[in-house]
């Protein structure tokens, strides 16, 4: 019980999603409530959505400096800074949901000290993945040959995947893809399922190729000094709310949001094209050089990249079985 005189310790949590987003409501708020409840009101989490305290791409620096106490941002914005973590971005490893990939990465985080070392500047709370990216096209795509020549909105490293599959990638803000897709400036875009609802993609196009192309990694990190300044029992509260606990909250929320998106798409008459297992294999083989390249360059720098990727495949397989229906 808190005495009237004792004021709660306030923590600022800065994340990149808008306040109106499902992510804010179904992932961030539940975590805030969990922390406040477990600390019996001695911790108070102030949420700053839409990067109100530090923009995306600067959040890691901001949390390191202490401008925000906790941040949640997308990892791929920080190219070159987390070389091992970039391995999680290897395409078509088969993770069937956000939750699966996130739990697999947390296993890797415990197993590989090289991965933990990358976040040594901060207190890493957990890693998680967005829902697997699917291909939204203006014309139906059932085979790899039909990807060839498409102009696809695919930011950053996802562009390399699309190039490997024969498309020409362009990068533009996700918010502009609706317009570009409906006007035919682009032929296709990549998004996780939740985007069907978020960006009203069913108005812009009809076809979705369910290919689980890629996953995108996010981190949740806390300022080290702030963490160390907390009383031991409150540090324990933070510990108990992070790791797989945090992963499960976000993973579950993202799974649900993807389901909502797919349901809505079906209602609105979108056509969902599922690749046959043989076709899926062909896509995987086509992008395999990307993984090999990454392994080769990382091994050259002395990282256990081969072992890392093998462990990741195994973990994804394990959680695909465990969490498949959820």
């Amino acid at each position: 019980p808190v005495s009237a005189a004792e004021k709660p310790i306030e923590l600022s949590l800065n994340h990149l999603f808008p306040e109106v987003s499902w992510f804010h409501k179904n992932a961030v708020l539940p975590w805030k409530n969990l922390v406040e409840q477990k600390s019996k009101g001695r911790l108070k989490v102030n949420i700053y959505p839409s990067g109100a305290l530090a923009k995306s791409t600067t959040m890691y620096d901001a949390v390191k400096a202490g401008a925000a106490d906790i941040v949640l941002d997308a990892g791929p914005y920080y190219i070159g800074r987390f070389p091992m973590s970039e391995g999680t971005q290897i395409p078509l490893l088969g993770a069937k949901s956000s939750w699966v990939a996130s739990r697999a990465w947390m296993d890797l985080y415990d197993e590989f000290p090289e991965l933990r070392k990358e976040y040594a500047d901060v207190k890493l709370l957990w890693l998680f993945s967005q829902g697997p990216g699917q291909l939204f096209t203006r014309k139906p795509v059932k085979k790899m040959e039909e990807v060839k020549g498409l102009i696809v909105r695919a930011p950053g490293g996802i562009g390399d995947i699309m190039k490997a599959l024969g498309a020409s990638p362009v990068s533009m803000p996700s918010s502009e893809s609706y317009l570009a897709l409906s006007k035919g400036t682009i032929d296709a875009t990549v998004f996780p399922g939740e985007a069907i609802a978020t960006y009203k993609l069913y108005e812009a196009t009809k076809y979705v190729t369910m290919s689980n192309l890629y996953v995108q990694w996010f981190f949740v990190a806390m300022n080290k000094e702030k963490y160390n300044s907390l009383p031991k029992d409150l540090q324990k509260v933070i510990d108990e709310c992070s790791g797989t606990v945090g992963t499960d909250i976000v993973g579950k929320a993202w799974n649900d949001a993807d389901k909502v998106g797919f349901e809505l798409g079906k209602q609105k008459g979108m056509e969902f094209i599922y690749l046959s297992p043989e076709e899926q294999k062909r896509w995987e083989q086509q992008v395999a050089p990307l993984a090999n390249e990454w392994i080769k360059s990382m091994e050259a720098k002395g990282y256990p990249a081969k072992k890392f990727v093998d462990a990741m495949r195994k973990a994804i397989e394990k959680y695909n079985k465990q969490l498949a229906g959820k």
Partner: peptide, 14 residues
């Protein structure tokens, strides 16, 4: 409102 380190952080990040 927060801390000096965070304020310095804003000066170099923004």
């Amino acid at each position: 409102i927060t801390n000096l380190g965070g304020a310095y952080g804003q000066l170099r990040i923004v």
